[in-house]
Design a binder for these strands. Structure first.
Lengths: 184, 184
DNA sequence: GTCTATAGAAGGATAGAC
DNA sequence: GTCTATCCTTCTATAGAC
């Protein structure tokens, strides 16, 4: 099952380099050297640098869409727990891709995945327990983006269970019941 | 008081463009067009593209160092409250710069400000109320980075008071008293 | 499928006139 | 202080041999 092993190598090295130096900060030359092939070989396997990025991020996007589907069938606290657990799992498994996508640069300048913004908004709503309180909305956004950044930057501080810590933190901050709009 | 008005224009446009497309994603040509001058003029006012970035970020860094100094004199809950209020205020006032600095790309490849990592770690500790529980540490990191990202991306959703919302969210998540290490 | 060689564009920075 | 013109490098992508 080592068919396409060059293609896989390219994806792996590109993920590593993009997440370290950013998309614009990584050249095809850099990737070719890391893989041990020529730039032309990269462009044989992928039509362009942009196409390489899309191929890299695509599986993570598919899983995010799948999570969005699963959440659509849930309500109340179940929905929020599933959203938190599912999202934490996803960003932990696709750490390099998250780093990439979270570079705001890439998000605005690259061939987008259609509907991804709507998915992100639904995720925020699920994190907020569909509360009407705008503070809960901000809380959800803080937790969602904070989880991404912590996962990106986490260097393994003393063997703690990052998955458990992140879900615990999320549960601690997010509202357990939908709240009415909070005054003052 | 319009002396140096070109220099100020350059800083303003550079902040806008860098925060929108990233440092690597913005060329001197882009900035020159936005300002309405030539690339040579940019490089008359700033020695290099890197120097322009440093000039842009420097005031924010100075204020962060000042906050760090103020926090050194405080303990307990006072320290945490001052850290949260001070940091929220800082990122709200330096929104474009935060966007820039938060691009992990820049942080690793550009002339650094000495000691800034240590300041960031002390800020995390203050957010965590100097708790020994690793979950509180993760919570502090989630809130700290989440605040940055939310401020960066916030498009003004319905005139809510972002400052108050962010401090409320931080207070809701962070421990009010130092806790012992939490088991299981 | 992989290579070398190169085209063609864009980047940062400098020289020198005004 | 600002400009035009230019230099040199680096980048993405293509052409064509093997």
């Amino acid at each position: 099952m080592t068919r396409n092993h060059t293609r896989e190598d390219i994806l792996a090295e590109a993920a590593r380099l993009f997440s370290r130096a950013g998309f614009k900060g990584t050249s095809l030359h850099d990737i070719a050297v890391a893989v041990g092939c020529s730039k032309a070989t990269l462009l044989y396997h992928f039509a362009s640098k942009d196409a390489l990025l899309v191929a890299l991020v695509e599986p993570a996007v598919q899983e995010l869409l799948a999570l969005d589907d699963r959440l659509a069938a849930l309500v109340g606290e179940d929905a929020r727990t599933a959203a938190v657990d599912g999202f934490v799992d996803l960003v932990l498994r696709y750490r390099p891709q998250v780093t990439l996508v979270y570079d705001s640069l890439q998000l605005t300048e690259i061939p987008r995945f259609p509907g991804i913004d709507a998915v992100a908004e639904r995720l925020v709503r699920a994190f907020a327990g569909h509360s009407a309180d705008p503070v809960d909305d901000i809380a959800a956004r803080v937790v969602l983006s904070g989880i991404c950044t912590v996962v990106i930057e986490h260097a393994d501080s003393g063997g703690i269970d990052l998955r458990k810590a992140l879900t615990t933190v999320a549960e601690r901050l997010l509202p357990s019941q939908p709240r009415p709009r909070q005054e003052s």
